[in-house]
C-alpha cells in the first residue's frame, strides 16, 4: 500500500521508541548503576527501622494494599489488632525524619508512602483520616507491646500517682 511511510520504517521507528523508553529501566535493573542513574527516575524510599519488613519486599510492593485492607476490616469490625500488617506499625517503622527532627507527614514528598505513590501517580486516601506519622512524643520511645498494654498503663498510672 503506497503511502508517505513504509511499513518497515514505521516498525523500525516503533522499536526504536520502545528501546528508548525501556532504557532507563534497563539501567536501574543493574544494581551497581541504580544508585546514580536512577536517582531522579525511580523512587528510592528510605528503609524502615529494623532488619526486615514484615514480609518480602516484593510481596509488600505488590500486595501492601491488599494486606492493609484485609487487616483494616479485621481491626475495625472484629477488633483484631495483630501487628504484622497494621498501618499504624507501618507508619511507625517507616517514619522519615524531617529537618525539624520530627517524622515528616504526608505533606512532605519525602514521606515513605509518597516516594512511590507520587512516582506511580496513585492517590493515597488513607491519610485523610489516618495519622501519616507517629505521635511526636510517644511512638518513638514506647515499644507498645501487645498484651502488656494494660500492665504498662497501670504502671504508668501508679508511677504518676506516686509522684
Amino acid at each position: 500500500m503506497p503511502g508517505p511511510f513504509s511499513r518497515a520504517g514505521v516498525l523500525a521507528a516503533l522499536i526504536a521508541l520502545l528501546l528508548a523508553c525501556a532504557w532507563p529501566g534497563a539501567a536501574h535493573a543493574d544494581p551497581a548503576q541504580s544508585a546514580q542513574t536512577a536517582r531522579a527516575l525511580v523512587p528510592s524510599p528510605q528503609k524502615g527501622k529494623g532488619d526486615a519488613c514484615v514480609a518480602d519486599t516484593d510481596f509488600m510492593r505488590r500486595y501492601h494494599m491488599t494486606v492493609l485492607n484485609h487487616q483494616r476490616d479485621d481491626t475495625v469490625h472484629n477488633g483484631i489488632r495483630t501487628k504484622q500488617f497494621s498501618l499504624k506499625e507501618c507508619i511507625a517503622c517507616h517514619a522519615v525524619q524531617g529537618e525539624d527532627a520530627r517524622p515528616v507527614s504526608i505533606e512532605s514528598p519525602k514521606h515513605f508512602c509518597r516516594t512511590c505513590h507520587d512516582y506511580a501517580a496513585v492517590k493515597i486516601d488513607c491519610f485523610e483520616c489516618h495519622a501519616s506519622r507517629p505521635e511526636s512524643n510517644k511512638a518513638a520511645q514506647l515499644p507498645t507491646g501487645h498484651g502488656d498494654g494494660a500492665v504498662s498503663a497501670l504502671s504508668r498510672y501508679l508511677k504518676g500517682k506516686g509522684q
Partner: peptide, 13 residues
C-alpha cells in the same frame, strides 16, 4: 480537613 490525628483514632473530613 484534619491532619496529625492520633494514630489509634483515625478521623477525617
Amino acid at each position: 480537613p484534619l491532619s496529625d490525628q492520633k494514630p489509634h483514632a483515625p478521623r477525617g473530613k
